[in-house]
Design a protein around this nucleic acid. Sequence first.
DNA 1: TCCGCCTCCTAACGAGCGTTAGTTAGGGGT
DNA 2: ACCCCTAACTAACGCTCGTTAGGAGGCGGA
Lengths: 200, 200
Amino acid sequence: MVEITRRQAIEDAASSLFRERGYSGTSVRDIARAVDIQGASLYAHVTSKQEVLWSIVERMAGRFEAAADAIEAADPGGATFGPGVYLIDLVRAHVGVITDDIERASVFVHEWRALQGDRRAEIAGRRDAYEARFRAVIADGIRSGTFQGPDPLVAAGYILTALNGLVTWYRPDGRLSPRDIADSYADLSLRTVQSARRSR
Amino acid sequence: MVEITRRQAIEDAASSLFRERGYSGTSVRDIARAVDIQGASLYAHVTSKQEVLWSIVERMAGRFEAAADAIEAADPGGATFGPGVYLIDLVRAHVGVITDDIERASVFVHEWRALQGDRRAEIAGRRDAYEARFRAVIADGIRSGTFQGPDPLVAAGYILTALNGLVTWYRPDGRLSPRDIADSYADLSLRTVQSARRSR
DNA sequence: TCCGCCTCCTAACGAGCGTTAGTTAGGGGT
DNA sequence: ACCCCTAACTAACGCTCGTTAGGAGGCGGA
C-alpha cells in the first residue's frame, strides 16, 4: 500500500487503530504516533478526530451503495434474471467491498455509532436504505415463489448480519481468497432463503 | 426489573451504557449518574471499571456455555437425534440467551475486546471453544451426508455471526417474540447447511 | 448504648484528552 | 532575493478521566 498523500496515511493509520481499539479507545496522539508525528501536528492535515471517522465511514458507505447501484443498473428490479441472481449479486458485491478494504469496512460496520448528530443520522438512514435493497429482493422472491421464508425482515436481518460478520474473521493473508468467500457466501445466502431438501 | 442489590443496579446501568456508547465511551461518572450517585461513590460497590465489564462478560460467557452444555448432556455428540436436531437446539439456545438479556448479551458480543490481559485471553479462548461446538456439529453433519456445505469453517462463521447479529436488531418490545425469532433462526440456520431445492 | 456495616459524600490526585496558538525549517516559483 | 506553501514542532488551554482518601449519616444486632 503505497501512500500518496499524508492525509491518506493518517486515515489508514486511524482505520487500523479504530478497528483495533474503537473510536473512543483511540486518541489523536495514538494516530499521530502511528505516522511518526506529534499529536498536535495532525491538525495540519485534519480538522478533528470526528472528521477522520466521518471520512472513513462516508467513503465506505459510498462503496457499498455504488456496488449495489451497479447491480440495479444491470438488472433493474431483478426483472430480467430473477431474485435469485439479484440476491447472489448483492451478496458477492457486499463481500467484495469488505474484502477490498477490511480495515475501513470494519470501522464502517462497528464504529459508525460513534458519529455525532446529523452525520450519525445520515449514515443510519443510508444504511437502512441499503438494507432495504436486501429486504426488497427477498420479499420479491417470496412473492414470486422463488424463495420460501419465515419473514422477509427476519431473513434479511439474518443474512445481512452474517455478511457484516465477515469483518470479524476475514484475514487477507488467510487460507480463503476473497473469491472463495464470495462464492461460499453467495451459496449460503441463497440457501437461507430457499427451502431445504428434507434429509435426516 | 426489580433490583435486589445496589451492585446489580450498577451492572444493569453499566450494561445499558456500554451497549449504547461502548466501554471506552462510557465514564464511571456516566454509570454513577445512571444510578443517582457521585462518581467516586461507585467505588464502594465496585473495585474498578474494568471489573464491571469483566463481571458482565463473564456471566454471559457462562450462560452461553451452560445452555450448550445442557444440549450436549441431553444428546451426547448428537448421536441419538442427529446433527440436524443438535444444530437446531444450539441455535435456539443461543437465541434464547440473547433475548433473555439483550443488554448484557450485546456487551458480551461487542465489548469483550475491551478486556485487558489475561481476562481478554480467557474470554477469547472460551469463545473459541464455544464456536467449536458449532463447527463440530456442522462437520459431523457434512461427514454423515445430513448437511451439504462449501466448508464447515465458513458455514460456522456465517451462522454464528448471523446469530450474534441478533443483538443489533432485537427489540424486546418489538413485533417478534423470542419464540418467533428462535423458530425462524433455527429454520434459517438449518437451511444454511442444507442444499437448496432448485427453483427458478 | 455502642459497634460495625452499608451507602454515600466532598475533595483531590496525576494523567490524559481534543484542540489552539504561535513558531520554525525547508523547498519551489517569481 | 523574496515569498509563500507545506509539514512539522513546542507549549499550553480547559476539561475529563479512573481512582483514592477520609469522613458522615443511618440502621440492625449485641
